[in-house]
Simulated assay, not measured.
Amino acid sequence: MALKSTIFKLDLQIADLDRNYYGNHTLTIARHPSETDERMMMRVIAFILHANEALVFGKGLSAEDEPDLLRKDLTGSITQWIDVGLPDEKRIRRACGRAQHVAVIAYGSRATEIWWQQNRAAFERQEKLTIYQISPEDAAALTALTSRNMQLQCTLQEGELWLIMGEHNLRVAPITLS
């Protein structure tokens, strides 16, 4: 018998002062059986950084050729492709060919630095690509906030995220690599 996804509910309030975007989102997030809480929370961070009424979670780990998050225009063309983790250069190149803009949320420890150094030249040739790095400390702090029902308030200002969940306050400072 196949394992089923675990469902998480998230009430998210976003005040993005950098993009002048303000929105309330009620999200249902399916965490794949092989996905960690850390990776799921990175998908939430990706959603916050690129929040839009048309942004949706993709099949991610369940489908090889689909992003973790995506946004399409009215014609069905992909305007935004967002991956979480350390995708290979070939996947990024294909995504840049299919979407108007591609973003990657890289996280983890030493592996992120190695991945970046190995692929930096190829990534810097992709004009449509933005890569953010989340520090291991920020990723661990986010993971500690994970619960099946979450209420999260987020303010983005000058590239930093300020998150409030209950009595917990957290600052996440993504580093733009490319």
Results as ranks from 00 to 15, higher is better:
92 I>A: 05
110 R>W: 03
28 T>E: 02
28 T>G: 06
37 D>K: 07
77 S>R: 12
90 K>W: 00
60 G>S: 13
116 W>C: 04
51 A>K: 00
171 R>M: 12
51 A>S: 13
128 K>R: 11
45 I>V: 15
157 Q>E: 13
19 R>V: 12
55 L>R: 04
36 T>W: 12
76 G>H: 13
92 I>H: 01
38 E>G: 03
159 G>E: 11
3 L>D: 07
175 I>V: 14
132 Y>F: 15
124 E>G: 01
140 A>L: 07
63 A>K: 11
112 T>A: 15
163 L>M: 11
36 T>S: 14
122 A>P: 01
83 D>P: 07
121 A>W: 02
125 R>E: 10
105 I>Q: 11
61 L>R: 08
141 A>L: 08
13 Q>G: 03
91 R>A: 12
42 M>D: 08
28 T>A: 10
146 T>N: 04
59 K>C: 05
57 F>R: 10
47 F>A: 00
38 E>L: 10
115 W>L: 02
11 D>R: 12
12 L>W: 02
147 S>M: 08
104 V>Y: 03
108 G>I: 01
132 Y>L: 07
1 M>S: 08
122 A>L: 10
3 L>G: 10
149 N>K: 13
30 A>F: 11
40 M>T: 13
117 Q>N: 11
168 H>K: 11
53 E>V: 12
37 D>G: 13
67 P>N: 05
164 I>P: 00
26 T>V: 14
144 A>M: 13
35 E>N: 10
155 T>I: 09
101 H>W: 06
165 M>I: 05
92 I>G: 05
119 N>L: 00
112 T>I: 08
150 M>F: 13
35 E>F: 09
122 A>R: 05
163 L>K: 00
82 I>M: 06
104 V>E: 06
31 R>E: 13
